[in-house]
Write a protein that binds this DNA or RNA. Structure first.
Lengths: 145, 145
DNA sequence: CCCCAAGAGTTGACGTGTCAACTCTACCTT
DNA sequence: AAGGTAGAGTTGACACGTCAACTCTTGGGG
C-alpha cells in the first residue's frame, strides 16, 4: 500500500481526464443528434421485445427503482409503453412505442458514428490490444462472474 | 462514418464496462473509508489555500453553480467555510476547516491506496504506455487548449 | 379457506448535477 | 456623480440516481 509517485498521479489524472472528456462528448452527441440521454439510449437499444421491468434491470445491471423512474419519464415522452400481460400473468410488461423504435434506430447509427470518430479511428493496434487486455483483466478481477 | 462491427461493439462494451466498474469501486472506497463522495474529495484536495469560487471551478473544470451547490452542502457538514476577503475586495472566498483538512489528508492516502491496488499494480508496462499515449492524444484532440 | 411470506413494481425523500434567471458589486463611460 | 454593464456568486426548477418504505399479487402452510 505504498503511496503514488508524482508520475503516477500525472498518469492517473491524464487518464481520468480523457475518460471524462470522452464520456462527456458521447453524451452530448447523443443529446444533440437524438435528444436523448445515455441512460435513455441504453433502454432503447435493450428493449427489443416486450419484457418485464426486472428483466430489463438485470440486462442493464441497474436497480429496479432506477429503471422504474426512468420508464416513468420515458413513458411521459411517448418512447415506451407499460402494458398488461394478458393471460393469467397479470404482471406489467414494457415495450417501445413506434416513436421509441424510430429513435432507437437513429440513435444506434449516430452513436456508432461518434464512437468510431472519437475513439476507434484514432486507436493504434497496440493501443487497442493493451486496452482490451486491461479491460478484460479488470472486469474479471472486480466482478469474477 | 462506417458502422461498427460486432467485434468493435464487443471491444467497446468491455472497455466501458471496465470503466464503470473501476469508477464505482473507487467511489465506494472513498465513501467507505472516508465518508465522502468523489466530488467532495476533489474539492478537499484542490482547496489548499483560501480561494475564490470561480478559481476552484476553473481548477476542477466544473460549472460555478455546481461548485456553489456542493460548497453549500459541505459547509453544512463543517468541511469548508465561506469567509470574507477583508481588504477592499469584499468578495467571498472559501477555505477548508480543520476538520476538512484532516479529512483531506486521510482521503488522499486512502484513495492513493485504492488506485494503486485496483489499477497501477495490475498494469503491465506496455498497457501503461498505450493508455498514456491514448489519453494524451484524446485530451489534445477534444480539448486542444 | 385464511393468513402470511416472498417477489415484483412503484413511490417518496433526498443528494447531486445542469441550465437559466437573478443579485450584487465594481468599474467604466459620459 | 449618475447610469449602465460585465463578472462573480447564488438560487430555483428540473433531471437523474439511491435508498428505504410501500403496494399488490402469488403461492404455500396451518
Amino acid at each position: 500500500m505504498a503511496d503514488m509517485s508524482p508520475e503516477d498521479w500525472a498518469f492517473w489524472d491524464t487518464w481520468m481526464c480523457a475518460q471524462r472528456l470522452l464520456v462527456r462528448e458521447l453524451d452530448r452527441g447523443l443529446q444533440r443528434d437524438c435528444g436523448i440521454s445515455k441512460a435513455e439510449y441504453s433502454v432503447l437499444v435493450t428493449v427489443r421485445r416486450p419484457m418485464r421491468v426486472g428483466e430489463l434491470a438485470d440486462a442493464l445491471g441497474w436497480e429496479k427503482s432506477r429503471v422504474s423512474h426512468l420508464l416513468t419519464r420515458m413513458e411521459k415522452r411517448g418512447l415506451v409503453a407499460r402494458t398488461e400481460d394478458g393471460a393469467g400473468g397479470r404482471r406489467t410488461s414494457i415495450e417501445l412505442t413506434a416513436e421509441g423504435r424510430r429513435l432507437a434506430a437513429g440513435a444506434t447509427r449516430a452513436h456508432a458514428g461518434n464512437v468510431r470518430r472519437l475513439v476507434l479511428d484514432a486507436l493504434t493496434p497496440a493501443q487497442a490490444e493493451a486496452i482490451r487486455s486491461w479491460s478484460e483483466e479488470l472486469v474479471e478481477r472486480i466482478e469474477p462472474s
